Computed example of a mutant assay.
Amino acid sequence: MRIGLLGTGPWARGVHAPALAGHPGVEFAGVWGRRPEAAAEIAAEHGVPAYEDADKLIADVDAVAVALAPQAQAELALRAAEAGRHLLLDKPVALAVPQARRIADTVAAGRLASVVFFTLRFGGERVGWLAEQAARDGWFTARCDWLGAVFTTDSPYAASPWRREKGALWDIGPHALSLLLPVLGDAATVAAAAGPADTVHLVIGHAGGASSSTTVSLTAPPQAAGVALELRGEAGVHRLPEAGVPPVEAFGHAVDGLLAAARSGTPHPCDAAFGLRVVEILAAAEQSLTERATVPLQPLPASPWPPTTEA
Rank of each mutant, 00 (worst) to 15 (best):
A81G: 08
P156K: 05
T189D: 11
P247V: 08
L179E: 05
S211E: 08
T119P: 15
A272L: 08
I204N: 01
P18G: 02
A273E: 12
A43Y: 01
R292L: 12
R13F: 02
A149E: 12
D55L: 15
T152S: 07
T189F: 15
R34K: 06
L181V: 15
L177D: 01
R143E: 10
A59Q: 13
A168Y: 07
A131H: 10
L177W: 01
A44H: 09
E132L: 03
L20V: 08
L20P: 09
A228V: 04
A50Y: 02
L229W: 00
I3R: 12
L76C: 10
P222C: 03
G7H: 04
E310V: 13
I103W: 04
P304H: 11
A54Q: 10
R136G: 04
A109M: 05
A272R: 05
E27Q: 15
L5Y: 03
S264W: 04
A261W: 01
E242A: 15
T119K: 08
S211R: 08
F151C: 02
E242F: 10
A96N: 11
D171K: 12
V278Y: 04
P296R: 13
P98Y: 00
T308A: 14
V278F: 02
T199S: 15
V116T: 10
G233H: 00
L218W: 01
V255E: 03
A243D: 07
G148W: 03
L289F: 10
W305R: 15
C144K: 07
K91F: 04
A273V: 12
A77H: 04
A67M: 11
A29R: 13
V227H: 14
L289Y: 09
R143W: 08
E45T: 15
G185S: 02
E242I: 05
R232L: 01
P241Q: 14
A273W: 07
F140Q: 14
A188F: 01
Q298H: 12
A72F: 07
A188K: 05
S288W: 14
V115C: 02
R111T: 03
H238C: 01
G252M: 14
Q99T: 02
L202W: 03
D137W: 06
G4E: 02
A21L: 10
R121M: 05
P10M: 12
G275W: 06
A83I: 09
A193D: 12
V237K: 00
R102P: 05
